[in-house]
């Protein structure tokens, strides 16, 4: 059964940063690139280091798209589809995310 899970208030994510949320036992990195209410969600695990750190990476723009650079070794993962810019064979799960009435929701 798929459903939307409410994670936190939008305002508790500082613009241009991410947070980690626990959704159905999974660690989900949720990003808010700017003041706007656009949010993105991907799995929090850096597949290279196998550590749950992606929510703590810097959001960056390359090739007109938004990515997060892992805080460990700076590989970049696409916020929309979880693909990795450095290595096309690696990717992380990407999830749907939205803002409803000032709250961030994630759909696994």
């Amino acid at each position: 059964m798929s459903k939307w899970t409410q994670v936190c208030e939008l305002k508790s994510i500082f613009p241009a940063t991410g947070v980690c949320a626990l959704v159905e036992g999974k660690q989900v990195a949720v990003f808010r690139p700017s003041e706007e209410s656009q949010v993105y969600a991907i799995n929090n695990m850096d597949p290279f280091a196998r550590a749950n750190v992606l929510s703590r990476g810097l959001i960056c723009q390359h090739q007109e798209q938004l990515w997060v650079a892992s805080p460990l070794k700076k590989q970049r993962f696409n916020l929309l589809d979880g693909s990795c810019l450095e290595n096309t064979e690696v990717n992380v799960e990407a999830y749907k995310a939205r803002v409803t009435d000032g709250f961030v929701e994630v759909h696994l």
Binding site: V7, C8, F14, V19, C20, A21, L22, Q27, N52
Partner: peptide
């Protein structure tokens, strides 16, 4: 922002 999860007090079990 120092908690691991924004919506839970648990720590990272990895």
């Amino acid at each position: 922002h120092f908690t691991h999860f924004i919506n839970s007090d648990k720590q990272d079990d990895n």
